[in-house]
C-alpha cells in the first residue's frame, strides 16, 4: 500500500475560515459517506443483527447452529482451502512477478502479462470451473489425449470435483492476483541494494536472505492476506464445480439463502456470514501483529 503524503496543516486550520468553513469542507465527502453507509455498513450491520435474530426476537440459536459438525467441517475446509491456495498463489505469483519485474518496464511482455493477470484474477468464477472441466474433467482434452497414449490421468479416482481440485483451480486466479498486488513492491526494490550486497561480500543467497527477503516481507504478508480473503470468499467457482452443497462456508450460505424454509434459514445464513467475518478479522489481527514486527523500519 502506498503511503499518502499529505501534510495536515494548511486548508484545515485557517484562522479566518472558522467552523463554517470546516463543515462545508466535510460536506464534500458526504455523498461518499452516505453511499458507503447504505451499501457497505448497513449490510454488515444487517448481517450482525440477523445473526442474533430469530422468529421470536433476539436469540443465540443461530450461532449455536454453527457448532454442528457439518458447519464446523465447512469452516475447516474453507480455512484449509484458502490458506493453501493463498500460500501457493503467493509463492508462485511472486516468482512470476519477479520474472516480469526484471524485464523491460515498458515491454510488450509485461503489458501482456499484466493485462492477462488482470483478466484472470477477476474472471475466476464460473468460467474457470468450466475451463478446468474442459481440461482435466473426465472428458477434458488432456485426459482424453493421455488416454489415447495409454496413460490414465486419474489412476486413483477423479479428484477434480473435490477440495483438491478446488484448491488447484483457486491457484489459477490467486497467482495472477498476486502478480498484480505484489508487482509494485518488486518495482520498489533498487538495484543498488543488490550491488551493495555484492560489494560487501554477499552472494545471491545472502541478498535474498538478508536484504530482498526482509524488505519484501511486509508487502508479501499483505498480499497473502488479500489472497486468503479472496479465496475465503470465493463462491462462484465452487458453486459451478461442486454438485454437493455445503462443502465450504460460502456454499452453505448460498444453500441457506436459497432455501425455501424461511426466515430461520436467512438468520442462519447471517450467522454463517458473521462467522466468516470473525475469521477474516482474526487473520487480519494476526497479520497486523506479524506486520508490526516485519515492518518496524517502514516510515510512518
Amino acid at each position: 500500500m502506498t503511503a499518502v503524503a499529505v501534510s495536515e496543516t494548511e486548508y484545515v486550520r485557517r484562522p479566518l475560515g472558522g467552523r463554517l468553513r470546516i463543515s462545508s469542507a466535510w460536506l464534500g465527502a458526504a455523498p461518499f459517506l452516505l453511499y458507503t453507509g447504505l451499501f457497505l455498513f448497513l449490510p454488515t450491520v444487517l448481517v450482525a443483527v440477523g445473526a442474533f435474530s430469530g422468529p421470536h426476537g433476539p436469540t443465540l440459536a443461530n450461532l449455536a447452529q454453527l457448532s454442528r459438525p457439518y458447519v464446523v467441517s465447512a469452516f475447516l475446509n474453507s480455512l484449509v482451502l484458502s490458506a493453501v491456495s493463498a500460500s501457493v498463489g503467493a509463492v508462485v505469483g511472486s516468482v512470476l512477478a519477479y520474472a516480469v519485474a526484471t524485464g523491460s518496464p515498458d515491454g510488450i511482455l509485461r503489458r501482456l502479462v499484466t493485462a492477462f493477470c488482470g483478466v484472470l484474477s477477476q474472471f475466476g468464477g464460473v468460467t474457470l470451473a468450466f475451463a478446468f472441466i474442459a481440461t482435466i474433467g473426465t472428458e477434458g482434452f488432456i485426459v482424453i489425449w493421455l488416454q489415447q497414449h495409454g496413460i490414465r490421468f486419474y489412476p486413483n479416482g477423479v479428484w477434480l470435483f473435490s477440495l483438491t481440485g478446488l484448491t488447484l483451480i483457486y491457484t489459477y486466479f490467486e497467482i495472477p492476483l498476486m502478480v498484480i498486488v505484489f508487482m509494485p513492491a518488486l518495482d520498489g526494490i533498487r538495484p543498488q541494494w543488490r550491488e551493495a550486497t555484492e560489494t560487501l561480500g554477499g552472494g545471491t543467497w545472502h541478498y535474498w536472505r538478508h536484504v530482498a527477503g526482509p524488505l519484501l516481507m511486509p508487502a508479501f504478508l499483505g498480499a497473502w492476506l488479500l489472497l486468503f480473503a479472496n479465496a475465503f470468499s470465493a463462491y462462484a467457482t465452487a458453486a459451478a464445480l461442486l454438485d454437493i452443497g455445503g462443502v465450504i462456508v460460502p456454499l452453505q450460505i448460498s444453500r441457506a439463502l436459497s432455501s425455501e424454509v424461511g426466515l430461520d434459514q436467512a438468520n442462519f445464513a447471517a450467522a454463517l456470514a458473521l462467522g466468516m467475518v470473525v475469521i477474516v478479522a482474526i487473520i487480519t489481527l494476526l497479520y497486523a501483529r506479524l506486520q508490526r514486527r516485519s515492518a518496524r523500519w517502514l516510515p510512518r
Binding site: 449490510p43 454488515t44 480473503a229 470468499s233
Partner: peptide, 17 residues
C-alpha cells in the same frame, strides 16, 4: 473494507435491502 468482508457476506446483508 470490502476486501476483508467476503462478497457472500455482503450478499446476506444486501438481500433485505
Amino acid at each position: 473494507t470490502p476486501l476483508t468482508i467476503p462478497a457472500i457476506v455482503l450478499v446476506v446483508g444486501f438481500a433485505p435491502i
